[in-house]
C-alpha cells in the first residue's frame, strides 16, 4: 500500500523542516450562529522530531479536542495542520486513516483494548490493517509485547490483566508499526501510582529511542518529565514552558 504522505511532502513552512507536528491557527467550533461554541480559538503549535511535550489544561479547556486534531481523528474548522510534513487537510478519509495507522501511535486513558481479543491479537490489529502477512503479524506483535514485558501474557484477554499490564499492551499495540509520533491521552489516569510509574518509565524508554511523544495530562509531576509543557485554557495556548534542558521552539 503506497503512502500518500510521502508524495505529498511539499515544501514545509519556514523552520518546520523537522517538525512532526505543525499546527497553525487551528479553530474548532460546534454549532452554528448564536449557538456556536468555539472550543479551539486559534491554536498554533509545533513539535519537533524527538521532542516530548506535555499538554496541560483544565477539563473543558479544549485539550482533548486539540489532541483529536493532532491525532487526525478530527479536522479543524479553520487553520492548518501538517503532520510529518503532510498537509492533513488535503487528505481523503482513507488517506487520513493511513496516516493514523503508520505515523501515529495512540494511547488512551481507558486502554481501549478490544475485549474479545487476546493481548497478542490486539497487538496484531494495526499490522492487519497495514497489510502485513499473517505469520509476520504474529511474530512482530509478539516481539513488541515481549519488549514491554508481556511475553508471558500473550494469550490472555484484557480483562484477565491488571490495568498496568493492559496499558503496556496498548503501548505495544501503538508501536507495532513503528510510528514516529506517539499521542497519549492521560496514559496513567486509570492506574495506581505503582503501575503509573511503570508505564511512564516505558514511555521514557520509547522517547529515548528517538520517538516524538505528545501527552495530555493534568498531573504536573508527569508533565515535568517532558521536555516542555503546553498549557491550554479556553481554547488557547496560554503558556509554553520549556523544561530546563529545552531544545524546542513554540
Amino acid at each position: 500500500m503506497s503512502s500518500p504522505a510521502s508524495e505529498m511532502r511539499g515544501a514545509p513552512a519556514v523552520g518546520a523542516a523537522d517538525a512532526v507536528i505543525d499546527a497553525t491557527g487551528v479553530h474548532r467550533w460546534y454549532g452554528e450562529g448564536d449557538a456556536r461554541v468555539e472550543v479551539l480559538r486559534g491554536v498554533s503549535m509545533r513539535v519537533l522530531r524527538g521532542e516530548k511535550v506535555a499538554i496541560m489544561g483544565a477539563s473543558g479547556s479544549g485539550k482533548s479536542t486539540l489532541l483529536s486534531i493532532l491525532g487526525c481523528l478530527d479536522r479543524p474548522d479553520a487553520g492548518g495542520y501538517r503532520l510529518d510534513g503532510v498537509d492533513v487537510l488535503q487528505l481523503s478519509d482513507d488517506e487520513v486513516s493511513d496516516l493514523r495507522l503508520r505515523r501515529i501511535g495512540f494511547i488512551f486513558q481507558a486502554f481501549h483494548l478490544v475485549p474479545q481479543l487476546t493481548i497478542l491479537e490486539n497487538a496484531e490489529v494495526p499490522l492487519f490493517y497495514a497489510g502485513v502477512p499473517l505469520r509476520e503479524r504474529h511474530d512482530r506483535a509478539k516481539s513488541k509485547l515481549e519488549q514491554v514485558g508481556l511475553g508471558h501474557r500473550l494469550h490472555h484477554r484484557p480483562s484477565q490483566l491488571s490495568g498496568g499490564e493492559q496499558q503496556r499492551a496498548a503501548v505495544a499495540r501503538s508501536l507495532v508499526l513503528e510510528p514516529p509520533l506517539l499521542l497519549a491521552d492521560e496514559p496513567t489516569g486509570n492506574l495506581d501510582t505503582e503501575n503509573g510509574k511503570a508505564v511512564l518509565a516505558l514511555l521514557d524508554r520509547i522517547h529515548a529511542e528517538g520517538r516524538t511523544i505528545v501527552m495530555v495530562t493534568h498531573d504536573s509531576a508527569i508533565a515535568e518529565r517532558a521536555d516542555r509543557t503546553v498549557h491550554v485554557r479556553d481554547g488557547l495556548i496560554v503558556d509554553s514552558a520549556h523544561a530546563p534542558a529545552g531544545k524546542a521552539t513554540a
Partner: peptide, 16 residues
C-alpha cells in the same frame, strides 16, 4: 461502537 472507534483511531479504513 467503542471497539469500532478504537479500530478507526488505530488506523482502520472504512472498508476495513
Amino acid at each position: 461502537t467503542r471497539e469500532i472507534g478504537v479500530r478507526r483511531a488505530i488506523g482502520a479504513k472504512r472498508r476495513h
